[in-house]
């Protein structure tokens, strides 16, 4: 839109700290810059401070110290401009149960100071496949639909920045894919998206950059690709038909380990590498006469990554 100003950082957080009234310090000296048009994933375990950080940027929680700018506007001094640029889909499903879908999105648009534009809202509802539900009360919708209604509300005032706080928690695979597709589509229209998640694969799938937050501190911010290269280790797990006492000589060249009393063979590989080595391993297993009943892969969990990160620092 013509009134939008170009900014270097869509979100700029400087020395932000938060101590709750209970005395608990939820954020410790956070510094973060988010570029216009990027998809940024904030990755961290329960209680890391993701929601607190988002809530401060959106004006729901007061910061204890530090500065935040959104779309170039200070969230305190220019709170109107800053907030008008932001749409928020909170973690909790909280909607006005007795309202109709259509009136709730109109409400959101008005609340954020925009003149009515029914054509735009119609498009938003259609994009979220909610259009045929527009006259339903929210109470009558399924959980997934309610979540989409909250997204529609967040988009109703045409924000330049969209916060999605755990958009795929408790959401089935299909809706999760829909959500991902929606986020990509939004990015194409120039919207900057910040999402939080517990899942590495989600961050990997969606984000241009990933910030890892733990215990109120940003531990690292990096391009998704290079982060995955560093940390994205995977394991192949083979459930053996007959337990092994030791790893056979012929397989010593692979990074293997035995687990579950020799019933499981673990192979560590890097799925970002040119070749995973899996086909070769399977071939050699067959040659060595080792049968397996089942196989599956496992990604390094968030915990593994923290262990690696903290280990790397020590």
């Amino acid at each position: 839109m013509s009134t939008q100003t170009a900014v270097d950082s869509m979100i700029s957080v400087k020395n932000l700290s938060k101590v709750y009234a209970s005395g608990f310090q939820a954020l410790k000296d956070i510094n973060l810059e988010i570029q216009p048009g990027e998809i940024f994933a904030l990755l961290g375990p329960n209680g890391a401070g993701k929601t607190t950080l988002i809530s401060i940027i959106c004006g729901i929680v007061n910061a204890s110290s530090g500065q935040v700018q959104a779309a170039g506007y200070d969230i305190q001094r220019d709170y109107r401009s800053a907030r008008q640029a932001i749409g928020l889909v909170p973690q909790e499903l909280s909607t006005d149960m007795f309202e109709k879908v259509w009136s709730t999105v109109r409400f959101s648009r008005g609340l954020f100071g925009k003149a009515p534009n029914d054509a735009y809202l119609e498009q938003v509802l259609k994009d979220l496949t909610l259009w045929d539900k527009k006259d339903n009360t929210i109470m009558t919708l399924s959980g997934g639909m309610k979540r989409r209604v909250m997204i529609a509300k967040a988009l109703a005032h045409e924000p330049r920045i969209l916060f999605l706080d755990e958009p795929t928690a408790g959401v089935d695979v299909e809706l999760r894919r829909e959500m991902w597709a929606l986020v990509r589509k939004l990015r194409e229209t120039g919207v900057t998206v910040i999402l939080t998640t517990h899942y590495i694969e989600e961050a990997e799938e969606m984000a241009d950059r990933i910030g890892i937050i733990n215990k109120g501190q940003i531990m690292l911010v990096e391009q998704t690709r290079s982060l995955m290269k560093k940390l994205g280790k995977k394991e192949l797990i083979l459930d053996l038909a007959h337990p092994l006492a030791a790893i056979p000589e012929a397989l010593q060249s692979f990074q293997l380990s035995l687990e579950a009393d020799g019933h499981q063979l673990l192979y560590h590989f890097d799925d970002q590498a040119e070749s995973t080595g899996i086909p070769l391993l399977l071939k050699q297993l067959a040659e060595a006469g080792i049968d397996f009943r089942d196989l599956h892969t496992r990604e390094s969990s968030l915990e593994d990554i923290f262990v690696q990160l903290i280990g790397g620092r020590a």
Binding site: I60, Y79, R80, S81, Q84, I86, P90, D96, M97, L111
Partner: peptide
């Protein structure tokens, strides 16, 4: 009570 206050608090209203 319902949590929908988030929207009021995050809106550009004084």
């Amino acid at each position: 009570y319902s949590g929908t206050i988030y929207e009021i608090l995050s809106a550009p209203v004084s």
